[in-house]
Amino acid sequence: MTDHPADPRPRVTASNHSVAIAGTRCGSCGYCCLDDSVLCMACGSTLSPACFSPEGTIWAGTVQRIEVNGRIPPMILAYIDLDEGPRLLAHVTGKVTAPQVGARARLVGTTKEGDPLAEVIC
């Protein structure tokens, strides 16, 4: 038994000023996701690895002001619909306020705890 099972979070890749996020895309229906699943969750066809670009639009955001699992508040969180597909839960840098619905955002890397980290693009 381990306190730290395999990391289930999306895999953010960063190299030479470019950030991307790994996932899968269905060759049959086009469904995109950030899981490393074998079969498409939408249609059951075989998936191929994909790499999604870092920009997207905020679906909704909040500031979580309570401590959970030892994570220190405040934590700025948002669901970001990436331009190339998946909806991603990310931490957001910057001032402690809920990211606005519809604002543009960009992945910038990961938090020191390993969460996908984004910034709102002004």
Binding site: P8, R9, W59, A60, V68, L89, V101, G102, E113
Partner: peptide, 26 residues
């Protein structure tokens, strides 16, 4: 902690809060 969003620290109040934020905006 074995769940992607759970590992990122998303609590249930924060999940519901994002629905509320969406409703306020839309």
């Amino acid at each position: 902690a074995t769940d992607a969003e759970g590992r990122s620290g998303l609590s249930l109040p924060a999940l519901y809060a994002m629905s509320a934020a969406r409703y306020m905006a839309c």
